[in-house]
Nucleic acid binder design. Structure first.
Length: 324
RNA sequence: CCGGAGGUGGCAGAGUGGCCAAUUGCAGCUGACUGUAAAUCAGCCGGGAUUUCCCUGCGAGGGUUCGAAUCCUUCCCUCCGGA
């Protein structure tokens, strides 16, 4: 049968550029549903710190949101891929691809436009074009053993097991224990990359990619303000509650940014709030930089500077032309 | 005004005669990233030329020395204590 490619609208960009706000607006306009492509919003209970409440203003004023299983609904618009798993569990790109694909298919079946809000570049890439080796599963036992090895030993191990793989790795990855471990893990299975890629790729999308940016200084300022307002919104309380409900500080540190830093704060490693705010801001700046580095390489993105007052209108026009 | 401590690169903070353009942390910048990705990892970080080259440089000026951020001296400033 002849398949018409499914239309998929994508909004991407670094944190704090207002991706979700834009997505909600467009969803309203074009009868869409939103899919959060975010590696941390998938966790239940990580709300304020991951920006699931899209800005205090939504919570306070237009507070018509409700939580469902796997989605939230804000002013009648569904945002998917929120709250799909317990934060104590580890969720991976693979899980995300599987879950998101189902959600996308569901939205299309309902005759609506799926709008992906992408903050996690790897996840977005995996959904759109698959990743080789994606289907090669984690081998917990092996990892546990490998984690005990020194960097040097890991390097030697990979060189022995798969010199080809080692040869392809760059200097930075060769010093990255996490990558080395995964490489050994892949090399220890019978899977071929082709098999694995075939298992995950779909390529049946007709995408329109809208990228949001802002001058660096503006971006940092927005981040800085957001940190403060999140604290006002009760982010510290949120983390306390997570701890009380059994989420360890160690796990929080794995979750990174606000959760990791607040874990340190609650443990007394950071003693005053001023310092806390500074650290949070700095870490998130770095995060935004990493996102930018990643997204720069993304092809076919129409970039918009959010400082340009007219950008929402422009975006709307473009989406309109593409969609109808 | 007296006594004490001190002024180092955006900040914090080492260094106390040559190995110092100056440890380190933060901030900043660039990049990698094929199942933890808000993670993890690499590089840069006074200026310029851009393989061991040049210039400016550790509050300011002067001095000692073959050689000073490091010693002497004068001045300016900050902090603490006393008047």
């Amino acid at each position: 049968m002849v398949l018409k490619k499914m239309k998929l609208l994508i909004i991407l960009g670094p944190t704090s550029t207002g991706k979700t706000d834009l997505a909600l607006k467009l969803a309203k306009k074009f009868n869409g549903e939103v899919i959060a492509c975010d590696s941390r919003q998938v966790y239940v209970g990580l709300d304020i710190g991951t920006g699931k409440l899209p800005g205090g203003k939504w919570k306070m004023e237009n507070g018509k949101w409700k939580k469902g299983k796997g989605f939230w609904e804000i002013n009648g618009i569904k945002i998917w891929m929120y709250d799909v798993i317990d934060p104590k569990r580890q969720y991976t790109v693979y899980d995300f691809v599987k879950d998101a694909n189902q959600v996308i298919d569901g939205i299309i079946a309902r005759g609506k436009l799926p709008i992906i809000v992408g903050g996690t570049g790897l996840y977005l890439k995996a959904v759109l074009s698959g990743l080789p080796n994606l289907a090669i599963p984690v081998n917990r036992k092996l990892r546990k053993e490998l984690e005990k090895l020194s960097l040097k030993k890991l390097q030697e191990k990979l060189q022995k097991i798969s010199p080809k793989k080692w040869g392809r790795m760059n200097n930075s990855d060769r010093q990255n224990p996490r990558r080395l471990i995964r490489a050994v893990e892949i090399a220890s299975t019978d899977f071929t990359s082709e098999e694995s890629l075939r298992a995950t790729i779909r390529g049946d999308f007709n995408t329109l990619k809208i990228g949001l940016t802002a001058p660096r200084q503006v971006l940092y300022q927005r981040i800085d303000e957001r940190v403060v307002s999140r604290i006002y919104q009760g982010m510290i309380e949120e983390v306390k509650q997570l701890y009380e409900s059994g989420l360890s500080f160690k796990r929080m540190r794995q979750l990174g940014l606000e959760y990791g830093i607040l874990a340190n704060y609650l443990e007394g490693k950071i003693t005053n709030e001023e310092e806390l705010v500074k650290i949070l801001q700095g870490e998130i700046h770095g995060f935004a930089r990493r996102q930018i580095t990643w997204f720069k390489k993304e092809k076919n993105v129409l970039w918009f500077d959010i400082m340009d007052q007219n950008f929402p209108g422009e975006v709307e026009k473009i989406v309109n032309r593409w969609y109808y």
